[in-house]
Each structure stands twice: as C-alpha cells, then as structure tokens.
Nucleic acid binder design. Structure first.
Length: 264
DNA sequence: ATCGGTACCTGCACGC
DNA sequence: TGCGTGCAGGTACCGA
C-alpha cells in the first residue's frame, strides 16, 4: 500500500513514540516476523526505550536506546496505529509506558522485525529520491539497460517510489513506461528528476494517497488521490489532451499512461 | 551482475 | 445470495 509519502506521513504521526519505553511486546504472527523467534524478539524489545524514528524509503526504523532497531515495512496493507483496539489482522502489540502501538497487516506482506545491528535490507537500498543530486540520478539512468517503469520501482536505484508515484512521475515528464532508461538523457532526464521531486513533495504535503485502506497512525485518510493524473484512470481522458488513459503490464505491475503524451 | 517471472496473503468489486 | 475471477500501494527468490 504505502509508498514514500504515505510512510513519511506515518513516521510523522508516530513521533509521540520517541522517548517512550516498551513494557511488553506481543507478537502474534510469525510470518511478519520473517523468521525471528517471537519469544526472543519480545525479550529483545521489553524494557527498551525508543530513541528515534526514521524513514528509509518505505522502511521505518526505530532506534532503541542502548543499540538495536525495530524495523517495520508496511508492505501493501500494513498499518501502525497508536491506541485503539486489536483487530482480526493485528500481528504485533507493543504496550508502552504511555499508550499502545498496534501493527496491523491483512495481507502480511509487511514485516515487523528486531535487529541488533543496522538492518541489511535497509543498508542495501538506493538513495532517497528527494536527496539524490541530478548528476548522480542522470548517471544512474545511463548505466541501466532496463525499462523506466521497472527501474523506478527498483528500490536499489531509488528508495521509496512505488506503483502510483512512478506512473505519476512518468506522466508528468512525458516518458513512456517502456522507455529504456539509458536513453533518457539531458532535458528529459532533468524533467523526470524534477517530476519525481514534485510529485513526492506534493503527496507528502497532502498527507499521502488514500487508495482503499491507507490511514496514518490516528486513522486519518490521505487526500492525494484527487490529484492522480493517470494512476487507476484507465479509459478516462488525459488531463492534458483528452486521450483515454491506457493500462499496460510492465514488470508484472499495471502501468497507467497517456498514449499520446507519453510516446515511446 | 542483472533481468523477468512467480510466489506469498487477504479482501474487494464485478459478472453470472 | 453465492461463487469464480481479476485486481490491489509490496519484496524475495528463482532460473536464465
């Protein structure tokens, strides 16, 4: 579900966790623990104070005082909620010195893991799209042989983009999802770089998208879906030229684009 | 070393 | 009302 702007919104909404101490951890779903032993993990978390909460692409890392990390990825349907009550898909409950943190995830594509050291999965990620320089971005494009859609979804190229914002950024820069990365140079590369920055900043400012079940830690929905120009608008008119938006499978993901504005 | 395809889960909207 | 199908913001893993 959540891409960079949604995860950023969640991270901001769980800022009250900073300085809280974990009293107990109840870990109900081995699958989202990804192989960690629930009892060992609960023991690692109990009594620990949350020193910081930071986002890396779509990952949330909570640093614990004295070392160690709680790493959370929301997958497609994950949610972090402060307070409320456990539900059918609540997989983790952290009882804090003040309040409770719930991790819910109906599809169980996300993860909720403890790591004593900085997690490898996070260390492997590419740069933040809002921090990379244009020169580094353009040089990266030239080195890749793959299609633009697949490249922007690849978290080792840039961390945090997902299906919505890739489609939106490609539309804004008039690049076809099947365009070869290495052939995007000069002004087109500049245009794409700025489109990525613009679409992510606008979405963060709007509090994320609200496709189906996205909510922040207080249960508030985002409102960015009103601004989607191509994502899930198959058959509707292009906002620029009126041509019906088309849907195409690229890298097994549905891709929405305007066949007139985004030529191959 | 990089790829494209497949698997993993549940829920929902849709057509019959 | 119920059933089958296709689709959904994600990544990991496999073989080529």
């Amino acid at each position: 579900m959540p891409e960079l702007p949604e995860v950023e919104t969640v991270v901001r909404s769980i800022a009250p966790l900073i300085g809280r101490r974990i009293i107990t951890a109840e870990l109900r779903c081995p699958r989202v623990l990804r192989g960690s032993d629930p009892d060992e993990m609960a023991a690692s978390l109990a009594g620990r104070k949350i020193a910081a909460v930071k986002r890396y692409g779509k990952f949330i890392l909570m640093s614990l005082e004295g070392g160690g990390y709680l790493m959370v990825h929301l997958g497609m349907t994950g949610r972090l909620l402060l307070g409320g009550a456990p539900g059918k898909h609540t997989h983790a409950i952290l009882t804090l010195d003040r309040g409770t943190l719930f991790y819910d995830d109906s599809r169980q594509f996300g993860c909720f893991q403890y790591s004593a050291v900085f997690p490898k999965r996070v260390a492997r990620l590419g740069p933040e799209p809002l921090e990379i320089s244009f020169d580094d971005f353009a040089a990266g494009l030239r080195r890749r042989k793959t299609r633009m859609k697949a490249l922007l979804l690849n978290q080792s190229f840039l961390r945090g983009m997902g299906n919505i914002y890739v489609d939106e950024a490609l539309f804004r820069s008039r690049i076809h999802p099947l365009a070869l990365a290495a052939r995007i140079r000069g002004d087109r590369a500049r245009c794409l770089y700025e489109a990525i920055g613009a679409v992510l900043r606008e979405a963060i400012a709007a509090g994320g998208s609200s496709i189906s079940d996205y909510v922040d830690a207080e249960g508030r929905k985002g409102f960015f879906q009103i601004s989607h120009r191509v994502y899930q608008r198959t058959g509707e008119p292009c906002v620029d030229c009126g041509t019906p938006i088309r849907r195409l499978l690229v890298a097994q993901r549905s891709s929405h684009f305007c066949p007139k504005c985004q030529k191959r």
